[in-house]
Write a protein that binds this DNA or RNA. Structure first.
Length: 848
DNA sequence: ATCCATATG
DNA sequence: TAAACATATGGAT
């Protein structure tokens, strides 16, 4: 559902008042009058206070961050960002299809009387959606009907006909299946498709296979005739209407939808010479495919859809919103295009970033994805690992490309069990490979009606073998089969997951934010040693070819890649992406200059450390990275802002010895923060918690992205969180206040450890930025000269893969100080039973 | 294991 | 008159 906007938040919303409808102020006034004093409103206020408190805590936390911490964080984050860059995959073509005002459009279609009126589907208590006409009055989904009536007295409220919507949805899905049999239906009116494979095949299709006839039998449908008449099948009113006004979000992204569907230049329309049927031929590009899909939907249902085309699901979804209604938008599969798109994109547009997250980030001066990238170091200190990782994904325009396949219905008990067994044994292999054992086994079942159930069982002792897991899973499955008996259990997806790993108890493996590490401080070298050891073990490089031994996530990725690309193959685009230390906006120029075109070569090369300038012999990138990390952290330590630091970079890195332990002479309490250690802790620590294996098709991959925790939020120092609706004010836009204050007090003379030039600055971040640039240039230069493959395609390091592989990402969870909860908060109890949420880490794997 | 907060349609 | 509901997720306790 194109759900723009939800609850009426006070003071929000933009509106381009049309000739008809209401403007923003009027809408807000009416809503306010209708709302104030209501229990609902009071509760909204209370919730708002809680959020404000969270923000306060966060700002307080922020004020205690030192520049040194920030600097260190920057290094770590950038290292991780670099890994993400390298794993960027632009080979898939993902589309997101979204029916326009679905329920309302159906009602209008079937009742001509409604066509020119503002309507909404729902009840006086709650509206499910509204048509575009009604939206001009501020009437939208998730608004109670009685309020909508005050906004728009002429509004017609139609009761929903879900059966009808389901039927139409099925018709649409039949079309979609032609392009991706494994498409993922998100709801009745939304779906993701991976058309990579279709596109590939389509290139060789003769025109006839791309020809579609125009139905003219239904004269009452004027749209259809319009389509023929080479006039885009505009919606009678919708397309003409001003763009939807959104409560609560949407900095105007004025993009007037161009007449989409049949945009004549793009496909040849043919009139059968014999006067038989008119037909259109669609091209072979992704855009044409999507036009074709939308055309067919229109033909079949008389309804319009909007679509987004992008290299991953996140972007596709954002795109589908861009030219809605009845429009489409593509982000070409290049990094540049992605970054351009992301640049000014308000974070709120990104699925997974909701109202609260938006507000919290806004308090940090973050409005757009560029802001998000720019503040990445800060975010890594204020948010949980999962959270900032997902923020980083977002700000780099990364997202999942994976969807599960739909398999044909399975309903025979025997088959169900054998499938389950198969899943268990695969899962067991993964477990073994990861050296994990868990206590909770969860099965996930999605029936043919797309209903998902999960059932979990926790046992006393850890299990890891296929037999043990199956024994548990079988019982769970049996219970479900029995429950439906004598009806067969008709499934389209089954999953098995294991969680509750033994090592979760191990404090070292628990999630922590960096700041908690910083606070903890003083870790002994022993601790470091053990972490390193673990990491080293984890880092054992497994060649991608050895599919047998691949880590499960690697395997998953390979399986999911439909085209013939090898997932970790080095691609030119990926290479350019080496530099990630600059904000997307800045990185362009760099990018262009970085078109290292080195071919795939062996992973080991002779490197010169850009910090200490020591030649590192034949080592692989991983080792180089670690070495550089250490050099950097030494530099850092020596650059203690307390003193005027003049690091002799040459001498900092003592010996040749590339990647070994920190030297004993270094005794800073921050030693345990050498990036190579903490990055791994950070990246590994989090996601490992549930291995799961699913078969079937569709994984519920509803959203990816962020997640957050406030375990480390503290206080606040910002001015005034209460007004939520003004744009970023002076304070929020710049550097953190606290930081500015700190910085203004000191002046340092620092020597850039890379270029070796003296930098006089009062702003460590600026200096840091300088170093970043130097470092990246240096690295890139070195690498290019050495003709090295910049993509660490041999890396099977879990951090990267893990993050990518769990097709689902998390959404902002929360943590925050517990608040007194209102005495009545009703409905929480209902949805809890089935969830296996005890996992700290999650790695999901899917296979057939 | 249970509860809470966030997010989505 | 009147502000839903189901579901998924992370995280704290």
């Amino acid at each position: 559902m194109d759900n723009d906007g939800l609850l009426l938040r006070m003071g929000l919303n933009d509106n381009k008042a049309g000739m008809e409808g209401l403007d923003k102020e009027k809408i807000n006034k009416i809503i306010m009058e209708a709302s104030k004093g209501s229990r609902f409103y009071e509760n909204e206020l209370k919730k708002e206070k809680q959020v404000n408190q969270r923000i306060e805590n966060m700002m307080q936390q922020k004020s205690q961050i030192t520049t040194k911490q920030l600097w260190k964080a920057q290094l770590q984050v950038d290292k991780f960002a670099m890994e993400l860059e390298q794993s960027r995959d632009l080979h898939c073509t993902i589309i997101h299809i979204d029916m326009d005002a679905f329920y309302a459009a159906v009602e209008m279609r079937d009742n001509p009387e409604l066509r020119d009126k503002p309507i909404a589907v729902g009840s006086m208590r709650m509206l499910a959606t509204s048509n575009y006409h009604a939206r001009r009055f501020g009437v939208r989904a998730a608004m109670p009907g009685f309020i909508a009536k005050r906004l728009c007295p002429q509004l017609t409220i139609v009761a929903p006909n879900f059966d009808k919507y389901r039927k139409i949805s099925k018709e649409v899905r039949e079309i979609l299946a032609d392009y991706d049999p494994n498409f993922m239906a998100m709801s009745l009116d939304e779906a993701y498709l991976n058309i990579t494979k279709h596109l590939e095949e389509r290139q060789n299709w003769p025109e006839d296979k791309r020809r579609h006839f125009i139905k003219t039998e239904n004269p009452s449908e004027n749209d259809k005739t319009e389509a023929v008449g080479s006039r885009a099948p505009e919606l009678n009113e919708d397309t003409l209407s001003v763009s939807p006004l959104l409560f609560e979000d949407s900095p105007p992204q004025l993009k007037k939808p161009e007449p989409e569907i049949p945009s004549q230049e793009h496909f040849e329309e043919q009139r059968d010479p014999q006067g038989l049927q008119n037909s259109v031929i669609f091209g072979t590009s992704a855009e044409e495919v999507v036009k074709e899909i939308r055309f067919r939907i229109k033909q079949k249902t008389s309804l319009t859809a909007s679509a987004g085309i992008a290299p991953n699901t996140v972007l596709a979804k954002v795109c589908s919103d861009k030219n809605k209604p009845n429009g489409q938008y593509q982000i070409p599969p290049t990094r540049q295009a992605v970054m351009d798109f992301i640049k000014d994109l308000p974070i709120r547009k990104v699925p997974g970033i909701g109202k609260v997250t938006e507000k919290m980030l806004k308090a940090l001066g973050i409005i757009t994805c560029s802001d998000l990238y720019q503040k990445r170091a800060l975010l890594s200190l204020l948010f949980s690992e999962t959270s900032w990782h997902s923020f980083l994904h977002i700000s780099l325009g990364l997202g999942s490309t994976q969807m599960e396949r739909t398999f044909t219905e399975i309903s025979k008990a025997e088959e169900l069990y054998s499938l389950c067994q198969e899943l268990c044994s695969d899962l067991a292999q993964d477990l073994q490979r990861e050296g994990l054992k868990g206590k909770t086994v969860t099965i996930k079942l999605k029936n043919v009606n797309f209903e998902v159930k999960t059932r979990a069982s926790t046992v006393a002792a850890v299990v890891s073998t296929a037999e043990e897991i199956f024994a548990i899973a079988k019982e769970l499955l049996k219970a479900e089969i029995d429950a439906d008996y004598p009806q067969p259990l008709r499934l389209r997806l089954m999953g098995v997951r294991i969680s509750g790993f033994a090592n979760e108890e191990d404090p070292k493996n628990r999630q922590r934010s960096i700041i908690s590490f910083l606070k903890a401080g003083g870790h002994s070298l022993d601790t470091i040693g053990s972490v390193l050891e673990k990491n080293d073990r984890d880092r054992v490089v497994k060649p991608p070819e050895a599919s047998h031994k691949e880590s499960f996530f690697t395997k998953k990725r390979s399986e999911m890649s439909w085209n013939h690309q090898v997932i970790f193959k080095c691609e030119p685009e990926a290479k350019q992406d080496f530099q990630v230390s600059q904000p997307p906006s800045l990185s362009k120029e760099e990018m262009n200059e970085n078109l290292a075109t080195s071919e795939n070569v062996d992973e080991c090369q002779v490197f010169t450390c850009p910090i200490c300038f020591m030649e590192q012999g034949k080592i692989c990138l991983e080792a180089l990275n670690r070495h550089v990390d250490e050099c950097l952290s030494r530099t850092l330590i020596d650059c203690d802002p307390k003193m005027v630091a003049v690091p002799q970079s040459q001498s900092l890195c003592s010996e040749v010895n590339p990647d070994l332990k920190p030297q004993k002479t270094i005794e800073s309490p921050l030693v345990d923060f050498v990036p190579s250690v903490s990055v791994d802790v950070l990246s590994k620590g989090h996601h490992t918690a549930a291995l799961s294996t699913e078969a079937g098709n569709e994984k519920n991959q509803k959203q990816y992205s962020s997640l957050w925790n406030n375990s480390c939020l503290d206080e606040y120092f910002y001015q005034n969180p209460s007004h939520e609706n003004e744009g970023s004010d002076a304070t929020s836009s710049g550097e953190p206040k606290a930081l500015q204050t700190n910085l203004s007090q000191d002046k340092y003379t620092l020597v850039c450890p890379v270029c070796n030039l003296e930098q006089k600055t009062s702003d460590l971040m600026l200096f840091n930025g300088h170093v970043d640039i130097c470092l990246n240039k240096g690295l890139i230069k070195e690498l290019r000269e050495d003709n090295v493959n910049l993509v660490m395609n041999c890396s099977t390091e879990s951090s990267k893969n893990t993050t990518e592989s769990s097709g689902k990402m998390q959404r902002p969870g929360n943590n925050m100080a517990k608040m007194k909860r209102p005495g009545l908060m009703t409905n929480n109890s209902t949805s809890k039973k089935t969830k296996p949420n005890n996992s700290k880490y999650t790695i999901d794997t899917f296979f057939k």
